[in-house]
Amino acid sequence: MQSQMNSVNIGAHELMECHEVLSCMVNAINQFQLLQPHCQDQNLQNILQNQLSFMTNEYNAVVNALQQKANVGSLPTVKSNISATPTYGMNRNSVPESPNASINQLNDKDISSAMLGTHKASAVSKMHAALEFTDSQLREMMIQGSKNCADQAYETWNYMNQRGYYQVPTFDQTTTKALINSYQPNALYSNQQQTY
C-alpha cells in the first residue's frame, strides 16, 4: 500500500520563507524555555508562561496549515487587554549596562529584554514572509502572526516600562511640536472619502 501526499501548491520562495519563519518560531520557543527558570518576578513568570504556551499553539497551527493545506484555518490571536500608561522620560540615576559575566547574573530585566527582542525579530520575519506569499490563506496567517508578535512585544514592553527597565526618552516640547508640525495633509485628497 503506497501512501499518497496531498498536492500542495506553494512556490519555492514561499516554502523557503515558511522554513525561515518556522525556524525562528522554534528558536523563540526554545529561548523562552531557557529563560523560564531564571524568572524571579511572578508577574514576569506568568507573562512568559502565557506567551510560551501561545507561541507553541501558533507554531503548531502553522505546521498543520502547511502539512494539511486543504485545512488551513486562521491563527489564534493574542487577547490583549493592556491599557498601558507609559512612563516617559529618562531616569537620571540609571546604572550603565554591560553584559553579564555569567548566566547566574541573569535577572528579570535581562529576561524581559530578551523576550522583547525575540518578539520584535519574529514580527519582522513573519511580515517579510507575508509580503512574499502568493497563497492568500498563508499570507493572512503570516500577517496575523506578525500582529501577534507585536501584541506580545507590547505586553512585554509595558512590563518593562512599569519597572523602569525600558525608558522612553523625549524631546523638549519645542522640538516635538516642530517635528510634528513639519508635515501637513495633502490638500488635494484630504476632503475626499477613500474606499479601497
Results as ranks from 00 to 15, higher is better:
M1C: 07
Q2D: 11
Q2H: 12
Q2V: 11
Q2K: 14
S3V: 12
S3Y: 14
Q4F: 09
Q4C: 06
M5K: 15
M5Y: 14
N6D: 11
S7H: 13
S7F: 11
V8H: 10
V8L: 02
N9R: 13
G11A: 09
G11I: 03
A12K: 15
A12I: 03
H13E: 12
E14L: 00
E14V: 03
L15I: 05
L15F: 04
E17N: 09
C18P: 00
E20D: 08
V21R: 05
L22I: 14
S23E: 14
C24N: 14
M25Y: 03
V26R: 15
N27W: 08
N27T: 09
I29H: 07
I29P: 00
N30M: 08
N30R: 14
N30Y: 07
F32R: 14
F32E: 07
F32S: 08
F32V: 06
Q33H: 10
Q36G: 05
Q36L: 14
P37S: 09
P37I: 09
H38D: 08
Q40N: 12
Q40I: 05
D41F: 02
Q42R: 14
Q42P: 04
L44V: 06
L44P: 02
Q45D: 10
Q45N: 15
N46D: 15
N46Q: 15
I47W: 10
Q49C: 09
Q51F: 07
Q51Y: 07
L52C: 04
L52G: 01
L52V: 08
S53L: 09
F54H: 07
M55T: 13
M55F: 03
M55V: 11
T56M: 02
N57E: 10
Y59P: 00
N60Q: 12
N60W: 03
A61S: 06
A61M: 05
V62N: 01
N64G: 01
A65Y: 03
A65W: 00
L66K: 11
Q67R: 15
K69R: 15
A70N: 07
A70P: 00
N71E: 00
N71V: 05
V72G: 01
V72T: 08
V72D: 01
G73Q: 10
P76L: 01
P76R: 07
